[in-house]
C-alpha cells in the first residue's frame, strides 16, 4: 500500500507549528505566535504569507493607536488541510 503525499505546505516545521497553534484557538496575534513558536519575525512573516496565500489562514492587519497589529485565524480550508495532514502522518506512523 502506498502512502499519500504529505502536504508540502504543512510538512515544514514552522508552518506546521503555526497551524497547530491556530487550530486550537479562535485567533492569535502575530506576537503570540512568534513567542510560542520561538521564531524570528522575518521568518515567521514569510511562512504566514505562504499559509495565507494558500488560503489556510486569514490574516487581518489593523492599527491599535500607532502600533500595527496582525491577527491570524485558521480558515475552514486550513482545518481540512490540517486534518488531512494528520491522517496522512498516521499512515506513516502505523507499524
Amino acid at each position: 500500500m502506498g502512502f499519500d503525499q504529505l502536504d508540502p505546505l504543512l510538512h515544514s516545521q514552522l508552518r506546521l507549528a503555526v497551524m497547530s497553534l491556530l487550530i486550537s484557538v479562535e485567533s492569535a496575534d502575530f506576537v503570540y505566535i512568534k513567542e510560542q513558536t520561538e521564531s524570528t519575525a522575518g521568518n515567521l512573516s514569510v511562512q504566514i504569507d505562504k499559509l495565507s496565500t494558500a488560503g489556510y489562514i486569514e490574516v487581518t492587519k489593523q492599527f491599535e493607536g500607532k502600533k500595527p497589529k496582525t491577527t491570524c485565524k485558521i480558515t475552514s480550508k486550513g482545518i481540512t488541510a490540517f486534518e488531512t495532514y494528520v491522517k496522512t502522518i498516521q499512515q506513516y506512523l502505523k507499524p
Binding site: H11, S12, Q13, L14, N43, L93
Partner: peptide, 16 residues
C-alpha cells in the same frame, strides 16, 4: 524555530 523538513514522528510531536 527554522523552516525545515521534518520526519513524521517529529511532526506529530510538534503538533502535540
Amino acid at each position: 524555530m527554522e523552516e525545515k523538513e521534518i520526519s513524521p514522528e517529529e511532526s506529530l510531536k510538534l503538533i502535540q
